Simulated assay, not measured.
Amino acid sequence: MTLEARLAALAAAGQTITYGKLARDLGLRMEELTNALERLMEEDAAAGRPFRAAVLRQRLSPEGLPAPGFFLKAAILGRPAQDPLAFTRAERHALLPFPNIPG
């Protein structure tokens, strides 16, 4: 399964995954995963899409937030997160297949 397909499946299911688990599942080194996620964020920003990388979470984050690099990259791409928790929730919600239909 490709990175893009795995992120799409997680988003569709409303699930998250740790960076380490995703790297292991895809057979990637952490540096390779990080570089690929940053490229996807650039593609998403250019296309006006929510960040697919938002489905990742730090292993020890009590709120299930992505790593600090996610927020740094988002800011570089013109989408700074004043409130990281609200930003992450909004990105994840926007990734759902039908986010405007009440659950």
Results as ranks from 00 to 15, higher is better:
residue 79 R to C: 07
residue 53 A to T: 11
residue 101 I to T: 13
residue 21 K to V: 14
residue 51 F to A: 10
residue 3 L to R: 03
residue 51 F to E: 09
residue 26 L to A: 03
residue 18 T to K: 02
residue 18 T to C: 04
residue 98 F to H: 15
residue 36 A to V: 06
residue 94 A to N: 08
residue 30 M to Y: 10
residue 31 E to P: 00
residue 37 L to Y: 03
residue 72 L to S: 12
residue 18 T to P: 07
residue 45 A to N: 10
residue 15 Q to C: 02
residue 71 F to D: 06
residue 65 L to T: 05
residue 12 A to G: 14
residue 34 T to D: 12
residue 30 M to T: 14
residue 35 N to H: 09
residue 15 Q to G: 00
residue 86 A to L: 09
residue 30 M to D: 15
residue 67 A to I: 02
residue 59 R to H: 11
residue 42 E to I: 06
residue 33 L to C: 04
residue 47 A to V: 09
residue 39 R to I: 01
residue 102 P to K: 04
residue 53 A to W: 06
residue 21 K to I: 09
residue 90 A to W: 02
residue 79 R to G: 03
residue 10 L to Y: 08
residue 63 E to T: 05
residue 69 G to V: 05
residue 51 F to N: 02
residue 52 R to K: 13
residue 100 N to A: 12
residue 99 P to Q: 10
residue 31 E to M: 05
residue 100 N to L: 15
residue 7 L to H: 04
residue 66 P to L: 07
residue 60 L to A: 13
residue 98 F to W: 10
residue 49 R to V: 11
residue 94 A to E: 09
residue 86 A to V: 07
residue 13 A to L: 09
residue 16 T to K: 10
residue 42 E to N: 00
residue 97 P to A: 11
residue 60 L to G: 00
residue 19 Y to K: 07
residue 61 S to Q: 07
residue 20 G to N: 11
residue 10 L to N: 10
residue 72 L to T: 13
residue 82 Q to N: 05
residue 68 P to N: 09
residue 11 A to R: 06
residue 42 E to S: 09
residue 66 P to Y: 04
residue 4 E to I: 02
residue 35 N to Q: 12
residue 73 K to P: 01
residue 17 I to P: 00
residue 31 E to C: 00
residue 19 Y to H: 14
residue 59 R to W: 03
residue 84 P to F: 01
residue 4 E to V: 07
residue 24 R to A: 15
residue 62 P to T: 10
residue 102 P to Y: 01
residue 75 A to K: 13
residue 31 E to S: 10
residue 7 L to G: 03
residue 20 G to E: 15
residue 3 L to Q: 04
residue 102 P to E: 11
residue 10 L to S: 10
residue 76 I to F: 10
residue 34 T to R: 14
residue 15 Q to R: 15
residue 43 E to L: 13
residue 12 A to E: 15
residue 16 T to V: 14
residue 68 P to K: 01
residue 10 L to R: 05
residue 87 F to P: 01
residue 34 T to I: 04
residue 7 L to I: 10
residue 73 K to S: 10
residue 22 L to I: 09
residue 102 P to S: 07
residue 101 I to E: 12
residue 88 T to M: 04
residue 46 A to P: 09
residue 49 R to I: 11
residue 25 D to K: 00
residue 45 A to M: 12
residue 90 A to Q: 11
residue 9 A to I: 00
residue 40 L to D: 08
residue 51 F to P: 05
residue 39 R to D: 12
residue 4 E to R: 14
residue 73 K to Y: 00
residue 44 D to Q: 08
residue 46 A to M: 02
residue 49 R to S: 08
residue 11 A to K: 06
residue 51 F to M: 12
residue 15 Q to F: 01
residue 87 F to V: 03
residue 97 P to V: 11
residue 33 L to R: 04
residue 101 I to A: 05
residue 68 P to V: 06
residue 71 F to W: 08
residue 83 D to V: 00
residue 36 A to F: 02
residue 92 R to G: 04
residue 62 P to I: 08
residue 56 L to K: 08
residue 25 D to V: 07
residue 46 A to V: 04
residue 66 P to G: 07
residue 27 G to Q: 06
residue 68 P to W: 04
residue 57 R to G: 05
residue 59 R to V: 06
residue 82 Q to P: 00
residue 58 Q to K: 12
residue 91 E to A: 02
residue 91 E to Y: 03
residue 51 F to R: 03
residue 84 P to C: 03
residue 91 E to D: 08
residue 79 R to I: 03
residue 26 L to Q: 05
residue 87 F to Q: 00
